[in-house]
Write a protein that binds this DNA or RNA. Structure first.
Length: 835
RNA sequence: GCGGCGGUGGCGGAAUUAGGUAUACGCGAUGGAUUCAAAAUCCAUUGCUCGAAAGGGCAUGUGGGUUCGAUUCCCACCCGCCGCACCA
């Protein structure tokens, strides 16, 4: 009997797949294309190539490949490509440290990924491989930039932006976590810079509404995006400074509390502040406060339990509902980038305004009554955020605040002082980066013509070779003077290139379209290919991309659809968010020294073991802790499968065509039990795939099948029907495990049937064989398990009840008691209720 | 604070999707077979507890409820993880 030698069988089948280009699929119009099969686009989030692939990649692609295999065996034409998100900071930071050009380190890493992915045996169509750092790719990233610009969706503006001093670049709002740089953890500061933005806010509503178009996304991912977009309904209300004749619009979700507004607060960055304080007594103090705030980091400013600070402006505005003059303040608890940067303060019904009023001794007015005790005394129960009858609100007194809401807004509208409106938390996407290793922004600046887009036929604007990658507060590209100096496409005069590069999230916002037509030199993709393959039927990746990447890609798809380049509104119909693998309960990191190198395990146990293990260690959508013992357990299981199949091959002859079920008819005894278990396993694994990729229990079911085979095999060898059942069990076990362990499965199925497992149809359970002649009847007394007996499947309720009562143990439990109820659940249990 | 997810043996987890055998599968542990020996392999046992055994009692974060029967449904709470957060 040959031993299980994964290194041999894995190399053998990998060579077959590579030589025969097994996983390559044609596009419409290409030779071999057929529209008879349903298509399925299975896609894992493309990896950032840094060093070698890690266990996160192993898990992502093990899950994705299982799905790809499963769908192929259900008759689908599966497109399963991969590539590299190869622009980005780590390679550039490495370059600054070592002087090695980012391209060199990146391409070395890509080679390592290619090598590892081949060793993992992942079923990828390598003819579609892409890398975002190649001019062939970023030419089209630049092209999309131009299209967005053309359609008014890309614009340049000077604005306060988040700046990371360590990486010396600006960051998108989404890349600032708790006031720190998402990448390096450095405290982020604000700077006023002219930057390129994408107008994602134009799509805020559609990004929300179109969640309805998705087939299956995890709820928590949708919730995270929903919160991030932060749609809130309310009213825009205009407060006027009579002295200056300036209008101050505010956004409020509570126009019903307008009568309770006792002061008015502006953000320190508010553009009207200058005009308000110029030449007044308050000027010096206010300026000092503004400067103080400017020095503080975003994190400090947003800190919890921060005492309220602010300065009175010595001015007032008019409350539109009652004409009252209320004092104006500047305070840092009002944010410039939400709403209008100004708020009407209602201390009676808003906790922040309440705190501020307490600190500055401002009037607090109740305008909505709560329950009786709460409204007993003026200031008790305040701030009160709830609903109730209105008070101190003129003609609205007595009506419920929710009902008065509409009336107040209507009244404001009639007066020209306000209207109902919707506000979003989402900001436009800042895409400029003052870094080298990214796609250059295809724009030039001309003294005469201003900002001029590079004509399409001049793309790509290639990254120049430079020597010094260190950022100096501006892009390292600025040092490449020959490159920067160019000719204005408009007037032909001297002009300068934009030296910022694009955020790498731009590269990854459309790569799934390029896979569909990767060699196209005329266009980023052919509409025909995109119409055929899109949307992605199953997307797989980590939750860490729940907001950034997934929202940007959705935005791009919608914008490209509006321009007529794609025909879908949503790129990813189904999303699977995998959980993170930990080691000793902790996130793996180089600094902790607890990283797992997949290649070490593949050297020792083979790719099948590593792949099956990551699918078995727990539900794939949850995290799991990597243990060496667990890996060994899976390897032990595959070895058992192997030995069992080898024994079948040896004792019952070589390959016989078919699914292995030939000759199993008329089985009884252990043979029949094994046959039933085999059919049960088919049913169970299939159900686990269909019910959202419950791979841990799918693998467990095949383990159970193998355990059953070991239990009965000694008795069955030698008997023709018994051997047929063993053979069927072996072929089926291999077939069912093949999405996780494709090499061992290919080898076993080849040896026992002469067929190629990936070309065979997914097995179907024989419903006749699922149930046996008998079942285990559970007998309860007062709901407690008292006995179990084997009962014929066709026994009726009376017979079952009789058998239950005949049980010795049950007899003891009901002796001397009155049976007041008898519950019979056919095929399952009997419960006798006694008193 | 808001939103989401979760709490089951020594450990990872199963059963939760129509309420019906709690702990599948794996790990770990113990015993046995094989071996000169070890590794590997195979077999058996393994929630806690009382009992010689037959068998009993107790167990799914806590407290209630519905039910013949609740890990599953309802109410109230506790703990953990994740996301967002002075968002007006």
């Amino acid at each position: 009997m040959s031993a299980y030698e994964p290194e041999k069988i894995e190399a053998r089948w990998q060579k077959v797949w590579q030589d025969e280009k097994t996983w390559e699929v044609p596009n419409p119009g290409q030779p071999g294309f057929s529209d008879q099969k349903p298509k399925s686009y299975v896609l894992e989030m493309l990896p950032y190539p840094s060093g070698e692939p890690h266990v996160g990649h192993l898990k992502c692609y093990s899950v994705g490949d299982a799905i790809a295999h499963y769908r192929r065996r259900h008759g689908a034409e599966v497109i399963h490509p991969m590539g590299y998100d190869s622009f980005g900071l780590p390679a550039e930071n490495n370059a600054i440290k070592t002087g090695e050009p980012p391209r060199v380190a990146t391409e070395r890493s890509i080679e390592s990924f290619q090598h590892q992915f081949h060793r993992w045996g992942v079923s990828i169509d390598w003819s579609r491989e892409i890398a975002t750092h190649t001019p062939e790719y970023y030419r089209w990233t630049q092209w999309i930039f131009l299209k967005l610009f053309e359609h008014g969706l890309a614009y340049r503006v000077k604005a306060p932006v988040q700046w990371c001093p360590k990486d010396a670049t600006v960051l998108a709002n989404e890349q600032v976590v708790d006031g720190h740089c998402e990448r390096c953890g450095t405290l982020v500061v604000q700077r006023n810079l002219a930057q390129w933005f994408f107008k994602i806010t134009d799509y805020a509503d559609r990004l929300l509404e179109d969640f309805d178009l998705l087939e299956s996304w995890p709820d928590h991912v949708i919730t995270m995006q929903r919160n991030w977009i932060g749609r809130s309904e309310g009213a825009a209300v205009v407060f006027i400074s009579e002295e200056l004749g300036v209008e101050f619009p505010v956004f409020t979700t509570r126009p019903d509390t307008l009568f309770g507004a006792t002061f008015f607060v502006l953000a320190p960055e508010h553009p009207e502040l200058d005009a308000l304080i110029a030449g007044t007594e308050a000027e010096a103090e206010v300026r000092e406060y503004i400067n103080e705030v400017a020095r503080e980091s975003t994190a400090m400013r947003g800190a919890e339990d921060r005492p309220k600070t602010g300065v009175p402006l010595g001015r007032t505005v008019t409350n539109p509902v009652n004409g009252e003059q209320i004092p104006m303040y500047v305070a840092d608890y009002v944010l410039m980038d939400y709403g209008t940067g100004a708020v009407m303060a209602v201390p009676g019904h808003d906790s922040r305004d309440y705190e501020f009023a307490k600190t500055f001794d401002l009037p607090i007015r109740r305008v909505i009554e709560g329950s009786d005790e709460e409204s007993a005394k003026d200031d008790e129960g305040l701030p009160y955020p709830g609903d109730g009858p209105m008070t101190g609100s003129g003609r609205f007194d007595g009506s419920n605040n929710r009902e008065a809401y509409e009336e107040i807004v209507t009244w404001l509208r009639g007066e020209g002082r306000g209207k109902s409106t919707i506000n979003f938390r989402l900001r436009d996407w800042l895409v400029s980066r003052q870094r080298y290793w990214g796609a250059p922004i295809p724009m030039v600046y001309c003294d005469g013509c201003g900002i001029v887009p590079v004509p399409e036929d001049q793309l790509p604007i290639e990254l120049p070779e430079i020597k010094d990658y260190a950022p100096q507060g501006q892009s390292p590209l600025a040092a490449a003077e020959d490159w920067v100096a160019t000719e204005c496409p408009g007037c032909g005069g001297p002009a300068k290139r934009e030296t910022d590069t694009m955020d790498t999230f731009v590269d990854s916002s459309w790569y799934f379209l390029r896979y569909l037509d990767p060699g196209n030199v005329e266009a980023p993709w052919s509409r025909e290919a995109v119409d055929f393959w899109m949307p992605v039927d199953q997307y797989i990746g980590g939750v860490e991309h729940a907001i950034l990447h997934l929202m940007y890609a959705r935005f791009f798809t919608k914008a490209l659809a509006d321009m007529g380049y794609v025909g879908v509104q949503e790129p990813f119909a189904n999303l699977f968010a995998q959980g993170m693998i930990t080691r000793d309960g902790a996130k793996m990191s180089k600094s902790k020294g607890n990283t797992i190198s997949p290649s070490d395990y593949i050297d020792r146990y083979g790719a099948d073991t590593a792949r099956t293990y990551v699918c078995f260690m727990g539900p794939p959508e949850r995290g799991g802790d990597w243990t060496d013992e667990g890996v060994e357990g899976v390897h032990r299981f595959l070895s058992r499968l192997w030995r069992f199949a080898a024994e079948v091959e040896e004792k019952s002859g070589g390959a016989r065509k078919g699914d292995g079920s030939g000759g199993t008819g008329g089985a009884d005894g252990d043979a029949k039990v094994l046959l039933a278990k085999t059919n049960w396993a088919i049913e169970k694994v299939t159900r686990d795939f269909e019910r959202g990729f419950q791979f841990n229990t799918a693998v467990a079911a095949v383990m159970e099948l193998i355990n059953e085979a070991y239990r009965v095999k000694a008795d069955l060898f030698g008997d023709p029907t018994g051997e047929a059942c063993l053979r069927f069990a072996a072929v089926t076990a291999a077939s069912l495990i093949s999405p996780f362990a494709p090499h061992i499965a290919a080898e076993i199925v080849d040896r026992l049937t002469g067929l190629r497992v990936w070309e065979t149809e997914w097995p179907k359970p024989d419903p006749e064989m699922l149930g046996g002649d008998t079942y285990t009847l559970v007998i309860q007394v007062n709901g407690k398990l008292r006995d179990r007996v084997e009962v014929a499947t066709d026994a009726d309720s009376d017979e079952v009840l009789e058998l239950a009562k005949a049980s010795e143990n049950v007899g003891r439990m009901i002796a001397g008691k009155e049976v007041i109820k008898e519950i019979v659940v056919p095929g399952k249990l009997v419960n006798l209720v006694v008193r």
